[in-house]
Structure formats: structure tokens, C-alpha cells
């Protein structure tokens, strides 16, 4: 089992990384857009640490910086990718939401990666590797038909896959109440997939729970669906000022900030040290990337 300090450090690394991206946008030093996960770090870190990183596969989405850093620890490659540099994980071709590294894949169309994650789970099952697949979706993804086609197949074929739905309440500006009818969990249960709802901001509790579920899926080779409640403190994308939600609601979630919840449990000196190390690493990555070259097309 991972120590709380390690989990905290990973969450701080993700938080500081994305805060740095916002700073770079404000200084006009980044091109394009991002979808940050500030406030949702515990989900990414909880899952990544429950996995066997030597074989398991993570399939992510547009809001994937946290998933990527927690799974790969590759802050430098991601920074370079978002800055559009040749040294980025996919050499500037994908940017923030189209990443590949070893067993990590992300793409930018809602729900599009769900059947692909199924195919990967089938591949690992046929190869008898004992690996499982994590497929991250959001509450907004529930509007896509291919998600249900895919849950139907993974249940019928007993695929070792966990669908991790991060319910941050908003699909861009649309409240989950205005987009999802009925109970989310029932949607998975209708396909005879074991499903449960989890609280997403308490990393200790979440990580312990996820470790059990990962083992269960690995041993049973059966799909699992979890709906994890969380909240993004930032906007949907860089230019979103969150006019669709109240400041009161935001403040009530700030009390459950996954970082603050851990902060109180660790010695002050340690917290300061962790924060300092993360900032130094991110600043170092940024300085290095600034010197890196932009890619150009050769004759392909």
C-alpha cells in the first residue's frame, strides 16, 4: 500500500502542473486550450496507484492531465506536448487531449474511446495477461449511445474493464440534472454490470476502496462500473468563467478539496517540502521545454 505522503505528492504535482498551465495561458505562452482537472486529482491518483503499472491499461479523455501524470509520472513529456514541442509525448501532434505513452491512450471525442477500451480488454483476456483496462468517462459522456453498446458487449463477453465515471456535475455548462435521466448506477446495472457510487475527494478512503475493486476485476475478469462524485474547481476549458454555477456551490466543494483533506493529516514541514519539490520540478520542466524545438513535417 502506498503511503499518504506519496499520494499527496502526486495530487500536488497535478494541481501545480495545471496551475502552471493557467499561468502560461495568462501570459500568452500557450497555444490552443486545455481541460484541467483541478479539484478532481484524488480520482486520478487513487486509480493509478491501485493499478499494476507493468501491465494495466488506462484509456482517458479530454480531461486527462491528472490521469496521465498519476499513471506515468511524465510531467516533462506532458509539459512539452502541451507546449507543442518536438519532445512532447507525441511530438506535438496530439496536445493536451490526444496522448499516448506505453499503456496510456487518450482521445478527444466523448465516449469514442469506450469501445476501444473494450477491445483492449478483450485483447488482454485473449492473451491471458491478467491485465485490466481502466476507461475514464464523465457525466457528459453518458449522452453517447456508443457507451451503452459497449457496456452491453463487455457484460456479455465478461471483459476485465473498469468504467470510471468522474461525475463533476457539469458537462461543460450543463448540469447533470439537465442531461441524465434516472440513476446513473442503474444504467450499468441494467447490463448486469456491478456498479457503485463513491465519494471522490478523500484520497485515503478512495484509494483503499479502489485497490479492492481492481483486485476483484482482475480475479473475476468481469466489468465494473463506478460513479465517483467530485468537482472541478476550474472551468471546463481555459476560457470558461463558470457563470452557470453559484459561488456558494463552489465554496461548499472547496471545503472538500482533496488536497486540504490530506493537508491536515500530514506534518506541516512535510507539506511544505512536498509543495516546494513539485513546483521546482514543474518549473524545471517548463524551463527545459522553452528551449526545445517545435516539430516540422518532413517528407512523409
Amino acid at each position: 500500500m502506498k503511503e499518504l505522503k506519496d499520494l499527496y505528492k502526486q495530487m500536488v504535482l497535478i494541481r501545480k502542473f495545471e496551475e502552471k498551465l493557467y499561468e502560461l495561458f495568462s501570459k500568452d505562452l500557450l497555444f490552443g486550450t486545455i481541460h484541467a482537472c483541478i479539484g478532481q486529482e484524488a480520482v486520478a491518483v487513487g486509480i493509478a496507484n491501485a493499478l499494476d503499472k507493468s501491465c494495466d491499461i488506462v484509456v482517458s479523455n479530454h480531461r486527462g492531465h491528472g490521469h496521465y501524470i498519476a499513471f506515468s509520472n511524465d510531467v516533462e513529456g506532458l509539459m512539452a506536448e502541451i507546449m507543442g514541442k518536438k519532445t512532447g509525448v507525441v511530438a506535438g501532434r496530439g496536445g493536451s487531449q490526444h496522448l499516448y505513452n506505453n499503456n496510456f491512450y487518450s482521445n478527444g471525442v466523448q465516449g469514442g474511446m469506450v469501445p476501444i477500451a473494450n477491445g483492449m480488454a478483450l485483447a488482454e483476456k485473449m492473451k491471458k495477461t491478467n491485465a485490466i483496462v481502466i476507461c475514464f468517462i464523465g457525466d457528459g459522456t453518458l449522452g453517447q449511445g456508443v457507451v451503452y453498446e459497449s457496456m452491453n458487449i463487455s457484460s456479455l463477453w465478461s471483459l476485465p474493464i473498469i468504467y470510471v465515471l468522474e461525475n463533476n456535475i457539469y458537462a461543460m455548462s450543463t448540469n447533470v440534472k439537465d442531461a441524465v435521466a434516472g440513476d446513473i448506477i442503474h444504467r450499468a446495472k441494467a447490463f448486469n454490470i456491478d456498479a457503485e457510487k463513491l465519494e471522490g475527494n478523500d484520497i485515503e478512503a478512495l484509494y483503499r476502496k479502489l485497490a479492492v475493486i481492481v483486485t476483484k476485476v482482475r480475479n473475476s475478469s468481469k466489468p465494473y462500473f463506478m460513479c465517483i462524485d467530485t468537482y472541478r474547481f476550474c472551468g471546463h476549458s481555459k476560457s470558461d468563467s463558470c457563470e452557470y454555477r453559484s459561488r456558494e456551490e463552489e465554496l461548499s466543494w472547496r471545503d472538500k478539496d482533496p488536497l486540504s483533506l490530506v493537508y491536515a493529516k500530514l506534518p506541516k514541514e512535510m507539506v511544505k517540502k512536498v509543495e516546494k519539490e513539485c513546483i521546482e520540478r514543474i518549473e524545471g520542466a517548463f524551463r527545459k521545454c522553452q528551449k526545445d524545438l517545435y516539430p516540422v513535417l518532413k517528407n512523409e
Binding site: I57, P115, G119, M120, A123
Partner: peptide
């Protein structure tokens, strides 16, 4: 497969990405 053209195209793509 079930009648799910989008899903089975993705399924086949996932298999292809993982060595099949």
C-alpha cells in the same frame, strides 16, 4: 456481435492496438 456497428468498430480497433 450485437447490432452495434460503432462499438464493434472500436472493439476491433482496440484489438488492433494491442497486437491482434
Amino acid at each position: 456481435t450485437p447490432i452495434s456497428e460503432a462499438s464493434i468498430t472500436g472493439l476491433a480497433t482496440g484489438l488492433a492496438l494491442r497486437g491482434f
